[in-house]
Design a protein around this nucleic acid. Sequence first.
DNA 1: AGGAGTTTGTGAACGCGGGAACAAAATGGA
DNA 2: TCCATTTTGTTCCCGCGTTCACAAACTCCT
Lengths: 230, 230
Amino acid sequence: MTTRSSTDAARVIPEATVARLPVYLRALTALADSGIRTCSSEDLATAAGVNSAKLRKDLSYLGSYGTRGVGYDVDYLRYQIAREIGVTQDWPVVIVGIGNLGHALANYSGFRSRGFRVVALLDADPGIVGQTVAGVVVRPFDDLEEIVREHDVAIGVIATPAVAAQDVADRMVAIGITSILNFAPAVVAVPEGVDVRKVDLSIELQILAYHEQRKANGADAAPATDGGAA
Amino acid sequence: MTTRSSTDAARVIPEATVARLPVYLRALTALADSGIRTCSSEDLATAAGVNSAKLRKDLSYLGSYGTRGVGYDVDYLRYQIAREIGVTQDWPVVIVGIGNLGHALANYSGFRSRGFRVVALLDADPGIVGQTVAGVVVRPFDDLEEIVREHDVAIGVIATPAVAAQDVADRMVAIGITSILNFAPAVVAVPEGVDVRKVDLSIELQILAYHEQRKANGADAAPATDGGAA
DNA sequence: AGGAGTTTGTGAACGCGGGAACAAAATGGA
DNA sequence: TCCATTTTGTTCCCGCGTTCACAAACTCCT
Ligand SMILES: NC(=O)c1ccc[n+]([C@@H]2O[C@H](COP(=O)([O-])OP(=O)(O)OC[C@H]3O[C@@H](n4cnc5c(N)ncnc54)[C@H](O)[C@@H]3O)[C@@H](O)[C@H]2O)c1
Ligand SMILES: NC(=O)c1ccc[n+]([C@@H]2O[C@H](COP(=O)([O-])OP(=O)(O)OC[C@H]3O[C@@H](n4cnc5c(N)ncnc54)[C@H](O)[C@@H]3O)[C@@H](O)[C@H]2O)c1
């Protein structure tokens, strides 16, 4: 049915590569915006902050879209990557939990420009339901099923407090959502076939703190005194 | 072999392990909050959403803090991990770019409870400077140096538009910040010795979209009935 | 046309991380 | 005291991902 390429059989793209494709896409868009029509793997790798060999290998999983001795056509490669990722059309997305973070997400213009469309904002708090955020009226959480069916939503965003995250995820899964982006600092368990990705500010900061501490101790050589082996 | 105390140098913790320690810490806090004093690696692994063998190996990099046949003392292990990460005291943090996202970050209570303290909010827009956000007055970006020196800040958060990210990062690095958490969808280059971690909503969504697309296309390529369930 | 220069695509080597499996250590009961 | 049970800490193995290095392919200049 879809653009089923005749040449490719069982093309499996490594997960690490998949995670970098959006970065390449962003870099290509930046290049295109500055009027550049063609670039080498070296150019693009620099813009994307990776090694050029890695970039070439990553792109090789998609196909041979470059020209030896020349490089890559920026627009063409950008389209190919967008197609591979699946963002040539917009994906409908629902956001659950319209608190501090939910407001910021609702107002985020980057959704639209990167292949996503927020079709609904949902919250369980009657005090928030009915408010207009970013031009969209917040609807009760119980409308989730109706909305998901109506817009054929496959991707849900959780921006509720941690205690509610698992419940919200369960409801999403029950209704047919198969991809979840979780901002709550909680591990959410989902059945096979459902993807969950997490964005956790505190974890990122703590990783930075760890390295920061090591930098400090490297000069200092004075780790905290340990209570000793009991 | 013998669990020499923590003052031993040469203890190199794999990056993948470092990234999971905060998750263990969170899980341990949750266990402690529900009154559990002791747990097995299996219990903790379940709470953290990982394999128990991996958990044990991760913890073994820190030392031998468990008791065979018994498990781990929740509070003790929690302290050890917190100490290893470096969050037994608070790290001062500055946030640059107090727009939609910056507001949400400023209002985020999770900073304080997880080892971080927001010492300043900065913005370049005179219309935003002087406003009070989360009880803190937004200061001009040019005050960065003064603030960093005064509070000995090592960690900076970038929540500006993408075009400003590199400039802000450069200023931060010049002033002595050595760890950056970047929310802007841009690759920021920094000198050796400075750590940058990125949080990118669009990338996460695009990764989900890729897999979502594969699930949809899988109908014509998938081998019979394994299809996602099971 | 042919050679020099460029740049891609990929084969191969290597190191890191994940997971199974097991020996070592601690508890508790007979 | 001694043995069965539990659970940790560690070893071994395998697969994935990164990087190097180079042949193939293309352009451009003479
Ligand atoms: N604010 C930040 O910058 C930030 C940063 C990182 C992580 N987080 C995490 O993101 C989540 C949201 O943070 P926040 O600051 O926006 O919190 P918040 O309390 O301001 O907002 C949470 C919203 O979720 C709604 N909610 C609660 N239970 C719900 C349920 N069962 N179904 C639907 N909606 C429900 C609440 O009514 C509220 O509007 C939290 O888990 C927080 O830890 C926030
Ligand atoms: N809003 C979201 O939910 C969201 C989600 C993901 C990523 N992001 C990214 O986070 C960043 C901020 O998003 P936002 O929605 O808050 O944008 P915003 O435009 O609302 O806020 C940006 C703020 O940065 C300030 N600023 C601009 N240049 C500056 C400079 N050189 N120095 C200091 N401050 C400067 C502006 O005055 C403004 O207050 C953007 O890069 C955006 O792509 C936002």
